[in-house]
């Protein structure tokens, strides 16, 4: 899959999720089952750099979601 199509698929899949805005890296692997984990990882991190996605860190683990989506910004007083 070319990169633009993959990015679009990721955004569309995330937009469909209800009640949960942050996901583990592995959840992104499932969206692109034909790609190597390393490729998906690099793409996801690139999308963070492009400000499509953002990280949320529990300190021990990192979750990833669409930028600005979810309840975390409100409850953390960072909106």
């Amino acid at each position: 899959m070319d990169e633009e199509a993959a990015k679009k698929l990721i955004v569309e899949t995330l937009e469909k999720k209800k009640g949960k805005s942050k996901f583990y890296l592995k959840d992104f692997y499932k969206m692109l089952p034909d790609e190597k984990p390393r490729t998906v990882k690099n793409l996801v991190n690139k999308m963070v750099g492009e400000e499509t996605l953002e990280y949320w860190s529990s300190g021990s683990t990192t979750l990833i979601g669409l930028k600005g989506v979810g309840k975390q910004a409100g409850s953390e007083d960072e909106d």
Binding site: G19, K20, S21, K71, S75
Partner: peptide, 12 residues
């Protein structure tokens, strides 16, 4: 439900 995403609390 206002502060948290319940599925994330469950998964934690």
């Amino acid at each position: 439900d206002k502060m948290c995403e319940i599925p994330l609390a469950i998964a934690a």
